[in-house]
Write a protein that binds this DNA or RNA. Structure first.
Length: 114
DNA sequence: CCAATGACCGTAA
DNA sequence: GTTACGGCCATTG
């Protein structure tokens, strides 16, 4: 199944304030578990224009690390503003903040991926 | 139109 | 801990 940027944005918009998700987690919930890289491509496109306020800063890599090379400090600042602790290595505690299960449950409740 | 372009991840050595 | 590699594909200049 082809995965569009909008599919990615739809899931990212469901990440609650003060929580994060990994690129691979977003890919999984989009139904394309091997497309983590593609999630990065979709978020990269937001640098040019982010009309619908997609909360890109809530996506980090699977280790909890901020891997955005364009605006890492802005991402850190936005996360901290929401109460997410970011350490000196630009990492967050995934055990504590990963919202994948939460968002997955919300997707199930709201009936599938649309 | 079409080739280049990208914020990744899991596995293996 | 390290490097390497394949999977992934819509968007855009």
């Amino acid at each position: 199944m082809p995965l569009t940027f909008e599919d990615v944005y739809r899931v990212v918009r469901l990440i609650p304030k003060g929580r994060v998700m990994s690129y691979s987690g977003v890919a999984r919930l989009c139904g394309a578990p091997r497309s983590a890289r593609y999630v990065g491509f979709a978020l990269h496109a937001l640098l040019h224009r982010n009309p619908r306020g997609v909360p890109w800063w809530r996506v980090v890599n699977v280790h909890g690390r901020i891997s955005n090379i364009y605006a890492p400090l802005e991402q850190q600042r936005r996360l901290e503003a929401e109460g997410v602790q970011v350490d000196e290595a630009l990492r967050v505690d995934m055990q504590r903040y990963d919202a994948e299960e939460l968002v997955a449950a919300r997707l199930r409740t709201h009936r599938s991926l649309r």
